[in-house]
């Protein structure tokens, strides 16, 4: 479904801030795989997702989605294939627009924006049903401006927007990191449900090693802009946080410096 072939990305090349964020990375993901991504700060996890989403052009390499070479396509056009949820709950929704309007925008992702009325009453009813599945009681406030919702509610709406039309690829970048533990667990639960129900091919970055092990059917670890560990199937089910820490030290020759990941 997704193929990342020898992708390089260097930020601020030729300056003192030069940073090689992706160093010839290769990754192939099959349809229906749910991949969790871990790695230290600055390992290049977000950069990998941004490269796939087309936030900026890569320096070298090829990215294909479902056999389509998207390397030369800007983000807003790639959005036809990709659903995204960001770390900051404010990023994924338009706060001045209603829940229904945000969903209506998502419902046209990958299609042209026509000069026809944006939401029909039939559509609004359908949105209500989808929102009800989130179990947040938001279905009765479908025209409420998203800006007044809590972070967790906004993140749930963003998730719904990303998956309203089945995307070829779902990209989640620490989408529960800004939420309190309880809300984070709820949103993660919803994620799991939607991904399983629609068999979505998913990449999910997390700093929580436990989450990375429990969720998904494949795990990759990144360091210095490359993948240093790739575990799937039965091997993944048997993983423990301790194994991961050991693997990280072995592969990178450094200690995993992230208390949050170790403690959880």
């Amino acid at each position: 479904m997704l193929e990342v072939i020898n992708v390089h990305k260097t930020f601020d090349a030729g300056t003192v801030n030069e940073k090689k964020a992706l160093d010839g990375i290769n990754l192939k993901i099959e349809e229906g795989e749910f991949v969790t991504v871990i790695g230290g700060n600055g390992a290049g996890k977000s950069t990998l997702l941004n490269a796939i989403a087309g936030v900026w052009p890569v320096d070298e390499g090829t990215i294909t989605i479902d056999g389509i070479d998207v390397t030369g396509i800007p983000d807003y056009k790639r959005a036809a294939y990709i659903g995204r949820v960001f770390q900051d709950p404010r990023t994924g929704t338009a706060s001045a627009l209603g829940i229904d309007e945000n969903l209506a925008l998502a419902a046209r992702r990958g299609h042209s924006r026509r000069l026809v009325w944006g939401i029909s009453s039939k559509q609004r009813a359908a949105f209500k049903e989808r929102v009800a599945e989130l179990n947040l009681g938001l279905e009765d406030r479908i025209t409420t401006k998203v800006g007044v919702l809590s972070g967790g509610q906004r993140q749930a709406i963003t998730l719904l927007m990303a998956t309203l039309q089945k995307p070829k690829l779902l990209l989640l970048d620490e989408h529960t990191a800004a939420l309190d533990p309880k809300t984070a667990a709820t949103v993660l639960d919803t994620t799991e449900k939607i991904v399983n129900r629609d068999h979505l091919t998913t990449l999910m970055i997390t700093h929580n090693m436990h989450d990375a092990i429990v969720h998904g059917n494949r795990l990759i670890m990144m360091n210095n802009g490359d993948i240093i560990l790739d575990i799937k199937g039965e091997d993944k089910k048997k993983l423990t946080v301790k194994d991961l820490l050991q693997e990280f030290e072995k592969a990178s020759g450094e200690e995993f410096a992230n208390d949050k990941a170790i403690l959880s």
Partner: peptide
């Protein structure tokens, strides 16, 4: 209130979200 007009409102409100929703 049209699809295009709504996308213009979201463009002004949140450009990053708009791009992620395929809006030019």
């Amino acid at each position: 209130g049209t699809e295009r007009g709504m996308s213009i409102r979201s463009t002004g409100c949140n450009p990053q979200m708009s791009k992620a929703q395929g809006i030019n």
